[in-house]
């Protein structure tokens, strides 16, 4: 077996943003199901929240490759 322990750490670090993105889209689907006419208003907000939560995972993958 060979490889970097960084990747295990990144896998653990990705749990947080994964749960966060799940919650964001759960709320988006919930909102759309309750009030379908709001979908076009909710979509940019959901995608924006997704992008901001994803930033944490992105910083994680960058650091996993950078830190020796």
């Amino acid at each position: 077996m060979s490889g970097s322990l960084n990747m295990v750490g990144y896998g653990l670090a990705a749990i947080g943003p994964g749960v966060g993105i799940g919650l964001i889209f759960a709320a988006y689907i919930n909102g759309t199901a309750r009030q379908p006419e709001m979908q076009s208003r909710l979509q940019p907000i959901a995608i924006l929240g997704f992008a901001l939560a994803e930033a944490l995972a992105i910083i994680g993958i960058a650091l996993a490759f950078v830190i020796k």
Binding site: A51, E54, A55, I58, I59, I61, A62
Partner: peptide
């Protein structure tokens, strides 16, 4: 930084 890393890391991964 997050803006560029988001685009980069998605395409990279």
């Amino acid at each position: 930084i997050t803006m560029s890393l988001r685009l980069f890391a998605n395409m990279f991964a």
